[in-house]
Nucleic acid binder design. Structure first.
Length: 843
RNA sequence: GCGGACGUGGCGAAACCGGUAGACGCAGCAGACUUAAAAUCUGCCAUCCUUUUUGGGUAUGCGGGUUCAAGUCCCGCCGUCCGCACCA
């Protein structure tokens, strides 16, 4: 017999080498006739080290991929690197390293760490988005989109950091200041590249309906983000001018309750008027100062500036309304102008009360049909239209339809669908991203780079000692001849948003020819991704962009699928207790001793126990996976990641927990190691029916649980099976169960399974064994235990043959001593019999 | 403000279509083995009452309801978390 302790330090490296050399996890060619299973976890950003969140994410995907392989699927389970992005440039500025060197070193380090997890990954398909063989193909796709009219340029307002001289995303603006420089952020108009995601707004919305293997939460978030609403676009004519103000409303039914029209501070009319009115100019400037944080918007007072202009009401040209510039009207939504109906919109009411404008009720609130509207709470509920001439008596819905029809008939407006979704601005004034393959020529204008010139490769010789975009100030890189007139011209120096890189990598994994982004047939053989696993933080942007990109490719005829991810799973975070010292500084767990529930530092100073929260460097509550490999091995760590907490919920890291999983790994090992001794003695010791039933129930249950990603339940079933095997007396059944156990744990504990399989003389690799079959006959018992209730309270249980009919069940229940005693001679009024479950006696 | 999810022992959790609440694990307690510790093994472990018990009561955030039967369905609260946010 071999050692009584599993030795992961030898086993992990040994089996990882064998898996790699034998190529067992390489995806078969697309022509493989077996059903395909494409399992994908969101690829990591190479920040430097693998963290526990990665470990959890990749372990889950790995279990599924290994299980799919054992159940006869052709599996594609790849890995790559989302390797463009700002942290590399920050590192370049701070540490004086080249972003490429920094990134590639990180990839090497993280790849080594991932390999120690023993993932069943096809490393031959590894890709990195910062390498020309990837981003060059992305440039080709950009040009395809450009040619198809899905790409355009326009001036847009951006958050500009005047110190770092770069555009900031909204998330990078903290309290109005740049997150790195701390300088007040300016609004700046820049000419930016956009992708026409709004062309697909309706399709992206309706497509959500078909995604029945996506979490409802994510679908709802996307739905809200797309923000569809139906209404009326109509024109209010300016008095004394041929012009009009276009207004969008979702409440055309309340048109007779209008008391003013308001336009956004950025509206072209406001700008026009401001030229001759310094007070308005000041007011507009004030509006732009307003912050964008939650609290500021919540408390921001409604402010308006009366322009002195009037407009005619479209339903009654003799009815004139004042025109205001108002701080709460957004230029980005609708037409940047509204009509105010104070009685039925809270913002309009706040505004009307402040500026003493008319407030007329036009929707009855219960019995209240009075045109006079009291109070400061607008009524937005349903009701009958009142004080509205021809609309009186209609429901809100009927009035909407009527007004829209009328507007279209008389030509002053039309029904319209609005989306909150805006086009995707993809320009970034940065170095470490995919160069946009465009050339600007003074004579020919915007020229796409000829295909033959792709990839446009980033220059290596760049410096980061001055803020701003290194591509822009590179001495030679941007100088290029116009592809049309051959005169000197300039390259586009903006690079693409890194979300573009992650919008199609799953297609490139499925098919990676050298001469084009992907081969359609090969990609379609694998896609859509059968199971996608990642964090909820990507619920909107990444997943929406990827859905858009795939649709855009379908639109231009490059691929025949619309939805890239058939099933989506969003896993919970890995959390850990956090600690603070007396002076408020965060402490790392290994600086803290816990004794009897009281935490102190190593030197005995008091420690405050903080919240259990996501591991983060700033809170110092990070546990690095690397030492865990050294101390417990990959399998104990994997088992911890799968145990206890349901995968969609947060998982709290604990020292006791990893100790526990390490002990369990060894319990299984002892079963494997003991098999040969037992078998020589009692090889033909007959069947143990009870154990066989447990085994077959486990086979069936573990399979369904893995398939449903209920790893915590699969873990519980393995525990039950191991308990049963340990307790069972030696028998042929027991020996068989131990051998089968190796196959059952193989997806979750692959190194232990291989080691055990080899120890027990199994053929080949357990990873390539078929998943064991279960005998359905063994899943059903001949006898069932039936609950016996009196008035719904449990009084007894009786074990009866499964074949008992209702009458026999009732008789058995009534014969129970406890029932007789409880009834105490009373005659049951009614007896409810649920075969296989219970008998409820109503006394 | 709008939208959504969740709330079960000391802890993480399970419980299928409404049908024996607490599987499985962690922690804990008691014991065996040991010179000792670790490891390992055995047993106990929601709570209260009762004289033991094969005894009884109460328990799934709180209050109601539907039902023979509710953790599960319905209504109303309370709490926690998440998303969006002046979207007309």
């Amino acid at each position: 017999m071999s050692q009584s302790r599993f030795n992961p330090f030898k086993a992990d490296a040994h089996w990882q080498k064998i898996w790699e050399e034998s190529g067992v996890f390489a995806a078969p060619p697309a022509s493989d006739p077996r059903p395909k299973s494409y399992v994908l976890e969101m690829f990591p950003y190479p920040s430097g080290r693998i963290h526990m969140g990665h470990v959890r994410n990749y372990t889950m995907g790995d279990v599924l991929a290994r299980y799919k392989a054992m159940t006869g699927h052709a599996v594609l389970h790849p890995m790559g690197w989302d390797s463009f992005g700002m942290p590399a440039e920050n590192a370049a500025m701070e540490k004086k390293v080249h972003p490429g060197d920094w990134t590639r070193a990180n990839i090497a380090a993280m790849k080594a760490q991932l390999k120690r997890l023993g993932l069943a990954i096809d490393w031959s398909r590894e890709l990195s988005t910062c390498e020309p063989d990837y981003y060059g193909q992305e440039q080709a796709l950009f040009l395809d989109f450009y040619k198809a009219g899905l790409v355009y340029r326009k001036d847009s307002t951006v958050n500009w950091d005047p110190v770092d001289m770069t555009v900031l995303a909204n998330e990078q603006v903290i309290d109005g200041c740049g997150w790195r420089s701390g300088a007040p952020v300016e609004k700046k108009k820049l000419n930016q590249w956009f992708l026409k995601i709004t062309d697909f707004a309706e399709d992206l919305l309706s497509g959500l309906d078909g995604l029945d293997k996506w979490p409802d939460k994510v679908k709802l978030m996307q739905e809200n983000w797309i923000g569809k609403s139906k209404g009326l676009n109509c024109t209010f004519s300016l008095i004394g001018s041929g012009e009009g103000i276009d207004v969008f409303t979702t409440r055309p039914d309340t048109l007779y309750g209008a008391s003013f029209v308001a336009i956004a501070a950025d509206h072209s009319l406001a700008a026009e008027l401001a030229q001759n009115d310094p007070r308005l100019k000041d007011f507009i400037a004030d509006c732009k100062k307003g912050g964008t944080t939650a609290a500021e918007i919540e408390t921001a007072e409604k402010m308006g500036f009366n322009t002195g202009l009037s407009v005619a009401h479209p339903l009654d040209p003799s009815w004139h309304l004042p025109v205001y510039v108002a701080n709460f009207v957004l230029i980005e939504y609708g037409t940047g102008a509204i009509f105010g109906c104070p009685a039925h919109d809270q913002r309009d009411l706040d505004f009307a009360r402040k500026y003493n404008l008319a407030v007329t009720r036009v929707v009855a609130e219960g019995d209240d049909t009075s045109p006079v509207f009291d109070g400061d709470t607008a009524y937005t509920g349903p009701g009958t239209i009142v004080n509205s001439h021809a609309l009186n008596g209609m429901s809100v819905e009927a009035a909407k339809t009527t007004i829209i029809a009328l507007a279209e008939q008389d030509g002053w407006g039309e029904g319209q669908t609005q989306y909150r979704l805006r086009d995707w601005g993809v320009s970034r004034q940065r170095y470490w991203g995919t160069p946009i393959p465009i050339i600007h020529c003074d004579f020919c204008g915007v020229m796409p780079v000829p295909r033959a010139h792709l990839p446009i490769i980033l220059p290596e010789d760049v410096s980061f000692d001055v803020p701003g975009n290194p591509l822009d100030r590179h001495p030679t890189w941007k100088n290029v001849a116009c592809p049309n007139c051959k005169e000197p011209a300039r390259r586009e120096t903006d690079t693409l948003d890194t979300f573009a890189d992650s919008s199609w990598y799953f297609i490139r994994f499925a098919s990676q020819p050298k001469d084009k982004p992907f081969d359609r047939d090969e990609a379609e053989a694998w896609l859509p991704v059968g199971q996608y696993i990642g964090g909820i933080e990507h619920a909107i942007l990444h997943l929406l962009y990827a859905r858009f990109w795939t649709r855009a490719l379908a639109h231009i005829g490059k691929i025949g699928i619309a939805e890239p991810f058939e099933a989506l799973f969003t896993q919970g975070m890995v959390t850990h207790e956090s600690f603070k010292s007396a002076d408020g500084a965060w402490l790392s767990p290994n600086e803290v001793v816990i004794d009897g529930g009281v935490a102190t530092t190593l030197s005995g100073a008091p420690v405050t126990r903080g919240r259990i929260e996501k591991m983060s460097k700033s809170k110092k509550n990070v546990v690095d996976p690397d030492p865990m490999f050294d101390q417990y091995g990959a399998d104990a760590l994997r088992w911890f990641m799968l145990s206890d907490s349901p995968p969609e919920r947060d998982l709290e890291w604990s020292e006791a927990g990893i100790e526990g999983t390490w002990r369990f790994v060894n319990r299984i090992w002892r079963l494997f190691a003991s098999l040969d001794l037992v078998s020589s003695e009692v090889e033909s010791n007959g069947h143990d029916m009870a154990l066989e039933k447990t085994l077959h129930r486990s086979i069936a249950g573990i399979g369904t649980d893995i398939e449903a990603l209920h790893f915590n339940k699969a873990v519980a079933r393995v525990h039950e099976l191991v308990n049963a095997i340990e307790k069972a007396s030696p028998s042929a059944s027991r020996n068989a169960a131990i051998k089968t156990l190796a196959r059952l744990i193989s997806p979750m504990l692959p190194h232990l399974a291989e080691e055990g399989w080899a120890e027990m003389g199994g053929d080949g690799l357990v990873a390539t064994q078929p998943w064991p079959d279960h005998d359905p006959a063994l899943l059903v018992d001949d006898e069932v235990t039936i609950a016996v209730q009196i008035n719904g309270k449990l009084r007894d249980t009786v074990t009866v043959p499964k074949t008992f009919d209702r009458a026999e069940l009732e008789a058995a229940a009534l014969a129970s001593d406890k029932v007789i005693r409880s009834l105490d001679g009373a005659i049951p009024k009614k007896v409810i019999v649920v075969p296989g479950r219970l008998v409820n006696i109503v006394a």
